[in-house]
């Protein structure tokens, strides 16, 4: 298949710059070189250990007084970015969170893990993936990252959409559900978790990755790094500053409890189990 490089607006085109480890210069054209910035969007969500409850009035999920944390897939994304920086492939990591003021805490967590600076897009409005993708595109246009690493799924809305949408808006390639990532010159080699096993794709940079669970094991931030993170800068913007209309396209009419299962029985032996499956449940 023919490979075409997507021109990137505002990209700095320079000649004969030093080559970083892990990145080789494409000699066929002008050497397109610029520091490899990585953008990592991190979402503040209800902690994965919390057993959430549907609000009695059916308007949504009860989040008052509930423990909030960074979306687990986004921790994996931050970890991967930090490892690329430790390997000398990446030069700067920017953590971005979109939402309420407290998303600052989520950014601080990313900074303590090793991100260099943060951007908070502050709003009390409900943000759906299309709006998030548009806001992230506006930030990408300003920051010109070469790689954006997102989680494959936010564990609150379970949309699994934002990374793919951002790739579309930017006109970039995408490596979703990644369990292995390697930067080889101007290409990105991504192993993806697919339904039948694993698939490896070769992507043009700049590119989008979404992380799967087995990409890495995120580190815990050390106390000194948590202290250091307090001094790292966080820039705050509003959706309007980025010229994005965030009006939701999906209106939630109601949220209901899923059907409850009837309490079952304990069986005393394997023989009883088989007898019940045969004669009572009639499934074998």
């Amino acid at each position: 298949m023919e490979r075409r490089r997507q021109p990137v607006a505002g990209l700095i085109v320079a000649h004969n710059l030093p080559v970083r480890e892990g990145i080789s210069v494409n000699s066929s054209q002008e050497a397109v070189r610029f520091p490899m910035k990585i953008l990592v969007p991190v979402k503040r969500v209800v902690d994965y250990n919390v057993k959430v409850r549907v609000k009695a009035d059916g308007s949504g999920i009860e989040t008052n007084g509930v423990k909030m944390s960074m979306n687990p897939f986004d921790e994996i994304a931050v970890e991967e970015a930090v490892r690329l920086k430790e390997k000398g492939v990446a030069t700067e990591i920017i953590a971005v969170s979109l939402g309420v003021t407290q998303c600052q805490e989520t950014i601080r967590t990313a900074l303590a893990m090793g991100a260099d600076r943060g951007i908070l897009v502050e709003t009390d409005a409900e943000l759906q993936p299309l709006a998030v993708a548009k806001l992230l595109k506006a930030i990408a246009d300003q920051e010109q990252p070469k790689l954006i690493i997102l989680g494959k799924q936010a564990i609150d809305d379970d949309m699994s959409a934002t990374g793919q949408m951002l790739a579309a808006l930017l006109g970039w390639s995408q490596g979703t559900f990644a369990s292995k990532v390697a930067v080889e010159g101007e290409r990105l080699i991504v192993t993806r978790e697919v339904d039948g096993g694993l698939e490896t794709v070769d992507l043009a940079l700049p590119s989008i990755i979404t992380t799967d669970l087995r990409l890495n094991e995120p580190r815990y931030a050390s106390l000194p790094n948590i202290m250091k993170a307090r001094k790292k800068p966080i820039d705050t913007k509003k959706p309007a500053d980025l010229g994005v209309d965030v009006t939701p396209r999906l209106q939630t009419l109601k949220v209901e409890e899923p059907p409850k299962r009837k309490a079952g029985v304990k069986v005393g032996s394997v023989a009883e189990l088989v007898e019940k499956l045969k004669n009572e449940a009639k499934v074998i």
Binding site: L130, M159, S160, A161, Q164, M165, T176, V194, P248
Partner: peptide, 21 residues
Amino acid sequence: AVGKNILPRVAALLDVQPISD
């Protein structure tokens, strides 16, 4: 894996919020 990979990309190109799952 195929549907989740492709449909959100289609949605964004059409300026539509996908309805997942």
